[in-house]
Each structure stands twice: as C-alpha cells, then as structure tokens.
Design a protein around this nucleic acid. Structure first.
Ligand code: ZN
Ligand code: ZN
Ligand code: ZN
Ligand code: ZN
Lengths: 135, 135
DNA sequence: CTTGACCCTCTAGTTGCTAGAAGGTCCATC
DNA sequence: GATGGACCTTCTAGCAACTAGAGGGTCAAG
C-alpha cells in the first residue's frame, strides 16, 4: 500500500487546474463519477479521477462542448470500438473553429472601418460612429 | 395625419430582423422603452422605435455586449457630450476581437495537430487522438 | 481550545436570448 | 354571428458552463 493518491477536491483541483465548484458541477451532471467519501464526508479522489478530469479539461480547452466530452468519454471507455467517430468529432471541431475565425475576421473588418470614421473630439450629435451605426 | 407608423411587435420584428420575444426581452431589461398600447393591449411602435432597435441590432451584431449597447444608447441620447467615449468603446471591442482571433488561431493549430494524429481505422485502445488527449 | 483553511449542500445568478403554457384579440370568411 | 387562424398578451422555465453565496461541518496547527 504505497497509496499517496487520496486527494481532496481542492487537491484534485490544483492537480488539474479546475475549481472545486466545477468539479462538483461535473459530478452533478454525470461527467465525473461520484467518488468515495471519507469519514467526515469529504470527497476522496484517486489516480483514475485525475486522469479522467485531465482528459475532460484538455477536451474542454480545445473548445468542445460538454456534450462532446460526454461522447468522447463514452467512446474511450469501449476499447474495442473503431476510433473513426472520435476522429470525426475532432475534424468537425476543426471546421467549426475555422468558421468562427472567418466570422471574427469579417467582424474585425467592420469594426476597423467603423473605428476610422471618427477619432473623437466631436459632439455626440456629429459623431460619425454613431451615425454609421444608426441607419 | 399621414401616419403609417403604427407597428405591432411582429411588424417591428420584421422591420429590424428581431424576434418578438427578443423585443419584449429588450423592453424588460430597459434597452427599449415601453411603447404605447392599443385598445386591445397590443404594443404599438413608431418610427423612433424602429430607429432605436435598428441601432441596438447593429451594435449587437458587431459583438458588443448588451451592457455596452446600454452605454452607447445613454451617450447617444446626450448630443452635447464629447464623443470620445463611444470611439473608445469601438477601439476596445476591436482589440477584443483581435484577441479572440489570436486565441482561436492557436486553438486551430492544436486541433490540426491533433487531427493528424489519427485517420481512423483503429480500435479505440490504439487511437492516437485519445492518447494525445489523455496525458 | 480556538483559529483558519478547507469541505459539505443547496440555491440562485450570470449572458442573451428562446420556448412553452394558457389565454386574449383581430380580421376574414362563411 | 360564428368560426378559424394568425397574431398578440403574461408568466415561467430552460439552454451552456459555470460561478458565487449562505449557512453550516471538519480538520490540523499552535
Ligand atoms: Zn469624429
Ligand atoms: Zn466620434
Ligand atoms: Zn489512428
Ligand atoms: Zn483514432
């Protein structure tokens, strides 16, 4: 028994860069399994929880919604299935990010044009920015 | 009295590309003023409402939060104030969009790398994507 | 034995809408 | 004048993905 792996929720949080509230939230919506409890009713996490939560965080940080995290976890838990579905999810997310970038670049153009309409120093009544927003 | 400008909420919606629910919501949070009512208790809008809601939509479509819309409306209502504040808000939003684009481009890189790890055709147990997400 | 850091549950708030229930109004058609 | 359907009214709850707070319990150090 060389188990150093009994973590409180705060320790798990530090180990994975997640706030305790978020961890409880993930448990509540079924993303993380309910952990064991100590005598004092504290949640008690082990190495497997660290792995699973790290996975969740990595996937979330890549911008996937929690529903997709859920799917990925379910798939990852079935080692014999073909992996095409996971790979498709990644490609889909890549395309979505591409779309968002394109949207934001169009937006940027518009804002840039707008910003050049006026450099301040007017009364609101003559501000070209407000004018440009008004039609 | 050549007033053709008595719009129902649905007509205002069509005129501005906004759903009635959203218009009521804007009224509820004080972005739009309460309109007059007809005998049958229907909201009744005029040309000024069309102008104001169009402004709101333009500003929202540029990605500004409703709080900023609120500020802009308040400023625009004071024609004698200097316009520097509005102009600053636009610049600030421009910078924020730039930041978001940069963030998404970094994300895109990561996803692209991830997507190249595996092209499907494996068992989950050997999927490099899952591996790459797991450390 | 008390202090302070941590933990517990439960509830409500955030942003910007969107959807539904349960009913009222308007207007055209029969 | 009755009926139908499109529209309107209010109120309430829901979405994502957390975050924050109240009101308490636990634990280890000093
Ligand atoms: Zn100017
Ligand atoms: Zn200006
Ligand atoms: Zn592969
Ligand atoms: Zn694979």
């Amino acid at each position: 028994m060389e188990g150093k792996s009994e973590l409180t929720i705060g320790a798990l949080g530090k180990a994975t860069g997640t706030k305790p509230e978020t961890i409880r939230f993930y448990e509540q919506i079924g993303i993380l399994p309910e952990p064991a409890r100590t005598a004092g009713n504290y949640r008690s996490y082990g190495a497997e929880h660290v792995r699973r939560l790290s996975f969740v965080r990595r996937v979330r940080d890549l911008g996937f919604p929690l529903e997709t995290v859920r799917s990925m976890l379910a798939l990852a838990d079935q080692p014999d299935r073909p992996c095409g579905e996971v790979d498709a999810l990644v490609l889909q997310q890549l395309h979505e990010v591409d779309r968002k970038i394109a949207d934001l670049q169009r937006l940027r153009e518009e804002l840039d044009r707008l910003a050049h309409q006026c450099r301040g120093g007017h009364r609101m009544a003559e501000c070209r920015i407000i004018e440009a927003l008004s039609p």
